[in-house]
Simulated scan of single mutants.
Amino acid sequence: MEIRPVAPEDVEAVQALIESDPGYTERITGHPPGPADAQSLLMMRPDGLPEQAKVVLGVFEGNELVAVADLLRGYPDDGFAFIGLLQVHGDRQGCGTGSTAYGLVERYVFEHWAEVRRLRLAVVEMNAERAAPFWRRQGFEPTGEVKPHQYDKLTSTVQLYEKALCWGHPRLAVRDSPIAGKGLFAAGPIAVGEVIAVLAGRKVSTAELEELLEHPPVDTITVADDLHLVLPTDPRPVIAYGNHSCDPTTWWVDAVTLSARRDIAPGEEVTSDYGTSTGIADWRMKCSCGSPLCRGVVTGTDWRRPELQERYGDHWIPLLLQRQRAAQHA
């Protein structure tokens, strides 16, 4: 499948897609599809939002339109994109097309709207039984906000959902690394304290993670006991290419944010110490970082090492800081 902005010649196909699932339109508007719904979809946008901030995307399999999505850039605030609609052709529902289409939408945002860090959408109460489980499977969580929804004579409510996206510093580049495979490098100067990356993804248990690790690559950090954040794989975010170093150029400032540990010169590799973000006790990795401080092997119990505690101070993921403090008071 491929995704692209809908062109004028696609309007008839969009209208046919909308009409292929009349129940969806009825749950959202209280009416069956109208003959001009496709044209309305292309034109409608919130008051004050510029025309160039809206894009209607079509998901195609060959020449067939199988899904359509309405996206708003910078709405409701800078750094957001709002999914106003994701509708799958009635004949393609229940076979994974919706999840594939959503993945393509997220890839489009990743590739074209680099400033977007969060996706938001609204689930109409009349459609929640079907829509809410789908969006949760895609990694969205309710914000707790519920707003009124009025369309003609239909009075209902909407619940807002959000999903964080991975973000990487704009001066990061992926290149061949002397440490291992591909690595991250500074494409320009990065000052100490600058945010390098904000991680996001789906949360899985240790058992689920072990299954995922059988099919690498898997990019993950520990969030809590028996809970791990797994970064997306398609598209794989830039930060996922960051290699380990025992003398890293970045460190953690909160559960999902890496910042520059010192000034990073152009062309220098951008690294982190995997031992500061891994809480699986039996995890081990051979290290070839080449640093004079190289430990040779990185493990899931490196948080216990006094020299690392002194070197990094509070710059560990919160769970490992909690373990250190608990051990000190034991």
Results as ranks from 00 to 15, higher is better:
Val174Leu: 04
Gly242Thr: 01
Thr276Arg: 03
Ile190Gly: 01
Pro189Thr: 11
Arg304Trp: 08
Glu2Ser: 13
Val195Phe: 00
Glu208Asn: 06
Gln324Val: 05
Asp37Ile: 05
Arg305Met: 12
Asp273Asn: 13
Leu86Asn: 04
Arg137Cys: 09
Phe134Leu: 04
Thr278Leu: 08
Pro33Thr: 06
Gly181Phe: 07
Glu214Ser: 12
Leu49Ser: 05
His112Val: 01
Trp316Ser: 05
Ser272Val: 14
Ala224Cys: 09
Asp10Tyr: 00
Asp70Tyr: 00
Val238Lys: 10
Pro32Glu: 03
Gly300Trp: 06
Glu210Asp: 14
Val195His: 00
Arg305His: 14
Gly84Lys: 00
Thr249Glu: 06
Trp113Arg: 01
Pro292Trp: 04
Leu321Lys: 12
Leu320Asp: 06
Gln15Cys: 09
Gln39Met: 11
Val56His: 00
Thr276Ala: 06
Pro148Arg: 15
Gln52Pro: 09
Arg236Pro: 09
Gln322Trp: 09
Arg261Gln: 01
Asp77Ser: 15
Glu64Ile: 08
Gly103Cys: 03
Thr155Ser: 13
Leu160Gln: 14
Gly98His: 09
Glu307Val: 11
Gly98Pro: 10
Ala101Arg: 07
Ala16Glu: 14
Thr276Cys: 05
Ala191Pro: 08
Val55Cys: 04
Ala186Glu: 05
Arg323Gln: 12
Leu172Val: 01
Arg262Asp: 02
Leu212Tyr: 01
Ala240Ile: 08
Leu184Trp: 01
Arg137Gln: 13
His215Asp: 11
Tyr75Arg: 01
Ala81Lys: 01
Trp167Arg: 00
Val109Cys: 04
Ala327Pro: 02
Gln138Phe: 03
Gln52His: 13
Gln328Gly: 11
Gly279Lys: 06
Tyr241Phe: 10
Asp70Ala: 04
Thr250Cys: 10
Ala53Phe: 06
Cys294Lys: 04
Glu268Trp: 02
Val195Gln: 02
Gly242Trp: 00
His315Val: 05
Leu209Trp: 05
Gly139Ser: 07
Ala81Ser: 07
Arg261Lys: 05
Arg45Asn: 00
Val55Gln: 05
Ala16Thr: 11
Leu42Pro: 03
Gly23Lys: 13
Ser288Lys: 12
Glu307Asn: 13
Thr157Leu: 12
Gln324His: 01
Thr100Lys: 15
Pro32Ile: 08
Pro248Ser: 03
Val109Met: 03
Gly296Lys: 02
Glu12Ser: 15
Ser20Leu: 06
Val88Trp: 08
Ala36Val: 14
Ala36Met: 14
Asp91Gly: 11
Gly181Arg: 09
Pro50Gly: 03
